[in-house]
Amino acid sequence: MFNRSVIAGLGTCSFIDRQQNVVFQGFTGSEKSYLGCALAKAACLHRVRAHYIRMPELEEAWQMARDKPAGTTKFLNKYTAFTLLVIDEWLLDEPDESTRSMLLELLERRYDQASTVFCTQYAQRDWHQRLGSGVHADAIMDRIVHNTIWVETGGHNMREHTADLVTV
């Protein structure tokens, strides 16, 4: 289970003032999405502009933006403007070349300017390969791994645990 004092510290949103990122990594059902949403809500309560999006939805928005005049610029400006951006289901599917380019540009614009929360099932050691193992992967990783708070949410599926309690 995760360290409750770390979670309480994140709830103060001081990591946002320091432009730090947060990674919630753990087994499916281990409360990553819940924690990411809780941080976005806490940020809003602190009057910080926050946004939650699932990675598949971010990729879909990117694909739609590419088909519009100035769409990519508007897309990047929109997601750069959030002081806190929560990306859930990070690297659930391996991104294509276009998405990797977008991620690099988005994370470059956010680096040392804003905070990003990543909710993922994959350990950091697997990210490079899932990002395509090339130069883009190197650059994306470089903009995430430094100045990031890593929280292991564990291997216990809370949905399964809750279902067991209901059936008992």
Results as ranks from 00 to 15, higher is better:
Met1Lys: 11
Phe2Met: 06
Arg4His: 11
Arg4Asp: 13
Ser5Trp: 04
Ser5Phe: 09
Val6His: 08
Val6Lys: 08
Val6Gln: 06
Ile7Thr: 09
Ile7Asp: 04
Ile7Ala: 04
Gly9Pro: 00
Gly9Thr: 12
Cys13Leu: 15
Asp17Ala: 15
Gln20Ser: 05
Asn21Gly: 13
Val22Lys: 08
Val22Gln: 00
Val22Met: 03
Phe24Val: 06
Phe24Glu: 05
Phe27Ser: 08
Ser30Gly: 12
Ser30Leu: 01
Glu31Thr: 12
Leu35Ser: 02
Leu35Asp: 09
Gly36Trp: 02
Gly36Leu: 06
Cys37Pro: 01
Cys37Met: 13
Leu39Thr: 07
Lys41Ser: 14
Ala42Ser: 13
Cys44Pro: 00
Leu45Ala: 13
His46Val: 03
Arg49Glu: 13
His51Glu: 10
Ile53Met: 04
Met55Gln: 12
Pro56Glu: 11
Glu57Arg: 15
Leu58Trp: 07
Glu59His: 12
Glu60Pro: 00
Glu60Arg: 11
Ala61Lys: 10
Gln63Leu: 08
Met64Ser: 12
Met64Arg: 10
Arg66Leu: 14
Asp67Asn: 11
Lys68Ile: 12
Pro69Asp: 02
Pro69Glu: 06
Ala70Asp: 12
Ala70Met: 11
Gly71Met: 08
Thr72Cys: 03
Thr72Phe: 01
Phe75Val: 00
Leu76His: 06
Lys78Gly: 04
Tyr79Asn: 08
Ala81Ser: 15
Ala81Pro: 03
Leu85Thr: 09
Ile87Gly: 01
Leu91Val: 12
Glu94Lys: 15
Pro95Val: 05
Pro95Asn: 03
Asp96Ala: 12
Asp96Phe: 07
Asp96Lys: 14
Glu97Gln: 09
Glu97Ser: 14
Glu97Val: 05
Ser98Met: 07
Ser98Asp: 14
Arg100Gly: 01
Arg100Cys: 09
Ser101His: 15
Met102Asn: 05
Leu103Trp: 07
Leu104Glu: 10
Glu105Lys: 09
Glu105Trp: 02
Leu106Glu: 03
Leu106Tyr: 04
Arg109Lys: 09
Arg110Cys: 05
Arg110Glu: 00
Asp112Cys: 12
Asp112Ile: 05
Asp112Leu: 15
Gln113Asp: 03
Ala114Ile: 13
Ser115Lys: 09
Ser115Asp: 03
Thr116Cys: 11
Val117Tyr: 05
Val117Cys: 04
Val117Ala: 07
Phe118Glu: 02
Phe118Val: 06
Cys119Phe: 08
Gln121His: 10
Gln121Asp: 04
Tyr122Gly: 00
Ala123Arg: 13
Gln124Cys: 04
Gln124Val: 15
Gln124Ile: 15
Gln124Gly: 00
Asp126Pro: 01
Asp126Gly: 07
Asp126Asn: 09
His128Ser: 05
Gly134Asp: 15
Gly134Cys: 10
His136Ile: 02
His136Lys: 11
Asp138Ala: 13
Ile140Phe: 00
Met141Lys: 12
Met141Ala: 07
Met141Tyr: 00
Arg143Cys: 01
Val145Arg: 14
Val145Cys: 14
Val145Thr: 14
His146Gly: 13
Asn147Thr: 06
Thr148Tyr: 01
Ile149Thr: 10
Trp150Met: 15
Val151Met: 08
Val151Lys: 05
Glu152Leu: 06
Thr153His: 07
Thr153Met: 13
Thr153Lys: 08
Thr153Ala: 07
Gly154His: 05
Met158Gln: 04
Arg159Trp: 10
Glu160Asp: 11
Glu160Ser: 14
His161Ile: 15
Thr162Arg: 14
Asp164Tyr: 00
Val166Gly: 01
Val168Trp: 00
Val168Lys: 11
